[in-house]
Amino acid sequence: MSKAIGIMDSGVGGLTVAKEVSHQLPNETIYYLGDTARCPYGPRPVEEVRQYTWEMAEFLYRQDIKMLIIACNTATAVALEEIKTAFDIPVIGVISPGARSAIKYTKNDTIGILGTVGTIKSKAYEDALKDLRPTTVTYPLACPKFVPLVESGEYNSSMAKKIVAETLYSLKQTNIDTLILGCTHYPLLQPLIEQYLGSGVKVISSGDETAREVSAILAYRDELNSRHEKMKNKYYTTGSPVIFGQVAREWMNDQHMTIQQIKLP
């Protein structure tokens, strides 16, 4: 089936999932929407996040997509189940795949969780991990400075290195052997996070496991794009296409992508 896969996020972070989907499913077309004008979602009230998530989901649904990925952890925690129920296409989030991946890798059942204030407050990852393995010990940590760092394109800077070290200091004192990057913005900071925590901690990004789930669902529904020509990927942003493009072109390794600015209700 030649229809596109829709991927939505509060900003550029979901591109980490888009990149993994493109890598694992190179024949598939992606329509990506980043709500950069209203990013970050993490500190916002739940009802506001719900409203923004629905607006993004409905925009992509109108583009006649065959599947929707809610690549924002905060939005997944707040609205995934209700959107799944309302839409007649598969809708998946990034929390369950991330939790499954962490359980697979941990040796001592002690897992750290990095996320936005909203995601950590929701306890969505803790619940998902406990459902999979009740004996799991978790260390959740909100990282409010990480998303603005990524959105501004400063994720390789010396300032980023300093902020990562300051934020993760308390986590380094624990005995976690696995760390979930519970926000799709955070993989852009992954090299700095790994460097600070050291080789004894396996750092998990949801993108890889989410892409596997996408592949399995589309194969089961016989909707993989194996017989049709791939359409052009589309990128939409509610904020500045220039700022969005600086991160997106580098991360997706596509210097020719076209980015369209849209207005949500």
Rank of each mutant, 00 (worst) to 15 (best):
E20R: 15
G42A: 00
L188A: 13
I5L: 04
L114F: 07
A79L: 08
F146Q: 02
G245T: 10
F87E: 13
A165L: 07
S199C: 12
L33A: 04
E151G: 09
R50D: 13
P45C: 12
S22C: 12
T178D: 03
T76I: 08
P40Y: 14
A102D: 02
S240A: 10
L25K: 14
I120T: 13
I262K: 06
D254V: 00
R44D: 11
K263Y: 13
S122N: 12
A79P: 00
C183T: 02
L224F: 01
L188T: 09
E213H: 13
S122L: 11
I30G: 09
I89D: 04
P144G: 07
P265K: 00
K162H: 14
T53C: 01
D208R: 15
E209R: 13
Q173L: 11
I69K: 02
Y220R: 15
L149S: 08
T210G: 00
K121L: 13
S215K: 15
F59M: 09
K232H: 00
L80E: 12
A216Y: 15
P43N: 12
L80D: 03
P144T: 09
V164P: 07
P241W: 10
E250C: 06
V91I: 00
E81G: 03
L168K: 00
T76W: 00
Q173V: 06
Q51F: 14
E154Q: 15
Y105S: 14
E229T: 14
T136I: 15
N233L: 05
P148S: 13
I262N: 11
D109R: 15
Q255T: 14
Y31H: 13
I120H: 02
G239T: 12
K234W: 04
L171M: 05
P97A: 10
T136L: 03
I262M: 09
H256K: 10
T138K: 08
R133H: 12
G98N: 01
A160Y: 06
L15W: 07
